[in-house]
Computed example of a mutant assay.
Amino acid sequence: MKCQKVGTERGFSLLEALVVGVLLLISIIGILQMYSVTFYNAPKVDNLMMANYILTKEVEIVLAQTYTTLDNFLSSNYPKIVNYGNVNYTITYTLLDNINWGKYIRIINSWREGKENKNLSIELFKAKL
Rank of each mutant, 00 (worst) to 15 (best):
M1E: 08
C3G: 07
K5M: 14
V6Q: 14
G7W: 04
E9I: 08
F12H: 10
E16R: 00
A17K: 05
V19S: 10
V19I: 13
V20R: 00
G21I: 02
I26M: 08
S27N: 09
I29W: 07
G30C: 00
I31L: 04
L32A: 13
Q33V: 08
Y35P: 00
S36W: 00
V37Y: 08
Y40M: 06
Y40H: 06
K44P: 03
K44V: 13
V45L: 11
D46G: 10
M49K: 13
M49Y: 14
N52Q: 15
I54V: 15
K57I: 15
E60G: 14
E60K: 11
I61F: 14
V62I: 15
L63G: 15
A64L: 14
T69K: 14
L70H: 03
N72A: 11
F73W: 13
F73A: 06
F73Y: 15
L74N: 05
L74G: 04
L74A: 02
S76N: 15
Y78K: 00
K80Q: 14
I81T: 14
V82A: 04
G85C: 03
N88M: 09
N88G: 09
Y89M: 12
T90E: 09
I91N: 09
I91H: 08
I91E: 10
T92Q: 12
Y93R: 01
T94Y: 06
T94E: 10
T94I: 08
L95G: 05
L96W: 07
D97Q: 06
D97E: 12
D97W: 03
D97S: 06
N98K: 04
I99L: 11
I105S: 04
R106Y: 07
N109Q: 03
N109A: 06
S110D: 11
W111H: 05
R112N: 15
G114I: 02
G114C: 02
K115H: 13
E116G: 03
K118C: 04
L120N: 05
L120T: 05
L124E: 02
F125Y: 11
L129P: 10
